[in-house]
Amino acid sequence: MSGHHYVPRVVVVTGASGGIGRATARMLGGRGYQVALLARGETGLSGAAQDVEAAGGTALPIATDTADHRGVEAAADRIEAELGPIDVWVNVAFTSVFARFDDIEPEEYRRVTDVTYHGYVNGTRAALARMRPRNHGVIVQVGSALGHRGIPLQTAYCGAKHAIEGFHEALRTELMHEDSNIKVTIVEMPAVNTPQFSWVLSRLPQKAQPVPPIYQPEVAARGVLKAIDHPQRRARWVGLSTAGTILANRVAGGLLDRYLAHTGFSSQQTDQPRDTDQPSNLWEPVDGSDGRDFGAHGAFDERSHGAGWIG
């Protein structure tokens, strides 16, 4: 199953209604693939389905909360019944809370972990169960530089992303042990201009923002497609900032602690006060509340790079 000879037909994308998942789904549609779209928000899902079809693919949108393993299994059954065998599963869905650790409630912490970490476990389990009998397939975990380096105001998200790293390495070794043809790979992302900064629960005084340099979701999506094409690589890094963060933390973690203690609070907030009635997607999807489809891009287009290094 070396990269170029393996042409997937059916690809599943979780978190497909916005951000990286949305951009990835659109690019997969451009290749003519059949793309199953999993997310909670119906408005974003139907927008994503239109994107995929307009690009030349076939779309199957299924409203799913990835934290619910039974719901994920049911979605996988439906995908195989309607589109055929799943060739590739891409885990993207997440949620977060922007706040100091003391300001995050236990139920909120659990919810972030259930979506951001257990959602990947549930998706991976559903994919593997169906790929194993055929002994082929690719599972892509969309990771983050924050899975290697924690930053302030994001303890719940950083903890969940770190968990994905350990899970990925352990599972990869199990599959290698049995000489499986199923490939698991992870794509580590930089700061990306996604709608999360408009819909993630925030208790910060100012509006939340990604820490520059900020990349457009299409750059992240190109990293995902590269991982699908060459899944034998254990990991890919998108953006030089990702490489810099991961490497710096390996050699000078204490220095980075002090740097982030000094800069991490201000660099994640704009100079605008946070909108007190900003919606939050932690428990319910926010798209469609006013008929709105957030799409792939967040509010930082003018500050985001449309190109970036992919390692």
Rank of each mutant, 00 (worst) to 15 (best):
M1N: 15
G3C: 08
A67V: 06
S241D: 15
A48H: 04
Y6E: 00
A16K: 01
A16R: 04
V90S: 06
T64M: 13
A252Y: 08
R40H: 05
D103M: 05
A75G: 06
G71P: 02
A54D: 10
A261W: 15
N281L: 09
R250I: 10
M1G: 14
V140K: 05
A208S: 14
I186S: 12
G223S: 04
T173W: 10
P213S: 10
V88I: 08
S180E: 07
N281V: 05
T242M: 02
E218V: 05
D229Y: 00
D271M: 01
A49I: 02
T245A: 14
A170Q: 09
P195Y: 01
L260K: 04
R70Q: 15
A299D: 13
A261Y: 15
D290T: 07
G21S: 10
P212L: 11
R125N: 15
N249A: 03
P217F: 03
G56A: 05
A39W: 00
D275R: 06
E80A: 13
R233K: 03
H4Y: 05
G84C: 04
R26I: 00
A48Q: 03
K161F: 09
Y6C: 02
T245S: 12
P85H: 08
R233H: 03
D275Q: 11
G306E: 09
A252G: 08
W237F: 11
V11G: 00
T276F: 06
R134P: 11
L153P: 03
A227C: 04
I182Q: 07
D179Q: 15
T58F: 01
G123L: 01
A243L: 11
L60D: 05
T43C: 12
S144F: 02
S241M: 02
L175N: 09
P133Q: 05
E105F: 00
H305C: 11
I228R: 08
V140T: 04
P133K: 11
A99N: 11
G47H: 01
V7P: 00
T66P: 06
H297R: 14
L37S: 10
S241V: 07
F94Q: 15
R110V: 05
A191M: 07
A16N: 10
G21K: 01
I62E: 13
V52Y: 03
L45P: 13
M27T: 03
Y117E: 07
T245L: 04
S2A: 04
H305V: 04
K226S: 05
V35H: 01
G223W: 09
H262I: 14
G57T: 06
Y120H: 10
W89T: 09
L240G: 10
G57N: 13
T245Q: 12
L247V: 14
I228Y: 01
H230K: 15
A23K: 08
S198M: 03
V88T: 08
D87P: 02
P85V: 08
V11P: 01
P210K: 13
A235R: 15
H69V: 11
D87A: 06
V7Y: 15
S96T: 14
F294T: 08
F197N: 02
V121D: 13
I186N: 04
T194E: 03
A25H: 07
P279S: 10
A39Q: 06
G288V: 02
V142D: 14
E218I: 01
S96N: 10
G41R: 07
D179N: 12
E218R: 08
G29H: 01
L153R: 05
D51N: 09
S198A: 12
L240I: 13
D275C: 03
V35F: 01
A81E: 07
Y259R: 10
I246Y: 03
V238W: 01
